[in-house]
Write a protein that binds this DNA or RNA. Structure first.
Length: 363
DNA sequence: GTATGCTTTCGGC
DNA sequence: TTACGGCCGAAAGCATAC
């Protein structure tokens, strides 16, 4: 079962301030460049009715709502994390195995407790929906299926406040007419590539020769696409560990190719990241930089250290060198810059390394 | 050949 | 027609090690 909270950020705002419920609510990431620059994070369904969508420039969302009394609110991550924690605590109780995905979704393996019965699963889904509504005042959309892949697509089928059950013998028929981009891993680029191969629906994909898929998309993705198209998926519902990377990205006040301006911002991001790794008592092994040009094209560069570190000075130095090297080779105007730390591990360390070590001894 | 590590890009929310 | 965030993980593509 997949439980997906509806228009989560905007719904959290409605929960805090119920007077928002009868008007368009647009939760925005303001970049700080000008009064209105930035993008829409989430909008409630009233705003969506006016054509507002996630990722849309705020300017455009305002234009679509210019004649309406609408609320444009800045993201309040603390509020949403608090709401999310309560939701997850509630959901966890109903699962044999539980896996939170992002801030607003969770997979629940309920096979054992419903004894494999989809009728029992439907009843449980309805109980969960009522509990979320009555205890927390939130609506969600739920998908139930024989595996994670089908549950996910089922949950997307009816929103908001939906419930879609897909029993095993209905899986093929359910997926067949849907657009390929409903599959996880098929975004704009892959969908275009598939369209050029006359693959538009999941059914088209299911009928396509596996070997051709593999030669076009590679072994891993080709096989995945084929299995996904016929609803085959054996990914377990499994608790996630700590995040493997930590990043900060920010928009510059003006586009620039001036290294000094970039480094000033980069160092701010490093300080923020440093506070985070100190708080989490973690170290980093790689430092990456992310560069977004004025035309919104994205670049990244990274360097792996010889040993793990928790030093702010080293982080700033490596990021600085990467920016310097990039800009001297590509003197382009930048709009946004970011810094990412990966290869994260706890200080003292070694859980992963130790299991990896013993695991590799077997052959 | 297979496994592993690193860098870059893609895609989801 | 333009306009435009901030994260995260997965996978590709390449190099090197076994």
């Amino acid at each position: 079962m997949l439980v997906d909270l509806d228009y989560f950020y905007a719904q959290s705002e409605e929960l805090r301030n119920p007077s928002l419920k009868n008007k368009p609510v647009v939760v925005c990431v303001f970049s700080g460049r000008t009064e209105e620059s930035g993008a829409v994070s989430t909008a409630n369904y009233i705003a969506r009715g006016y054509g507002v969508r996630s990722g849309m420039p705020i300017y455009l969302a305002k234009k679509k709502l210019e004649s309406v009394d609408a609320a444009f609110l800045p993201v309040d991550e603390k509020l949403y994390t608090g709401t999310s924690d309560k939701v997850m605590q509630l959901l966890r109780v109903y699962a044999d195995e539980f896996e939170q995905v992002g801030i607003d979704e969770a997979y629940l393996d309920i096979t054992k407790r419903v004894q494999g019965s989809f009728q029992n699963a439907e009843n449980l889904a309805n109980i969960i929906k009522s509990e979320l509504r009555n205890q927390l005042g939130l609506t969600c959309s739920v998908g139930v299926g024989p595996n994670k892949l089908v549950a996910k697509i089922a949950a997307d089928e009816k929103k908001p406040d939906g419930l879609t059950i897909v029993e095993p013998d209905r899986v093929r028929g359910f997926l067949e007419p849907l657009a390929v981009d409903r599959l996880l891993g098929v975004g704009l680029k892959t969908a275009k590539k598939m369209a050029a191969m006359s693959i538009c629906t999941i059914g088209d994909l299911a009928r396509y020769d596996v070997q051709r898929l593999i030669s076009t998309f590679g072994r891993t993705r080709g096989t995945y696409f084929h299995n996904a198209s016929i609803g085959v998926d054996d990914e377990p519902v499994k608790e996630k560990g700590e995040a493997a990377s930590l990043s900060r990205i920010a928009t510059l006040v003006q586009n620039t190719s001036d290294l000094r301006v970039v480094l000033e911002k980069a160092n701010e991001l490093c300080v923020d990241l440093y506070a985070n790794i100190v708080e989490q008592k973690r170290t980093f092994k790689s430092v990456s930089i992310i560069l977004i040009a004025k035309d919104l094209s994205v670049y990244s560069r990274s360097r792996t250290l010889e040993s793990s570190s928790n030093s702010l000075e080293l982080m700033e130095r490596v990021a600085g060198e990467l920016f310097e090297a990039f800009l001297s080779e590509n003197p382009i105007e930048l709009r946004r810059v970011g810094v990412k730390l990966s290869g994260l591990s706890g200080i003292g360390m070694g859980q992963k390394q130790i299991t990896g070590f013993f695991g590799s001894r077997q052959d």
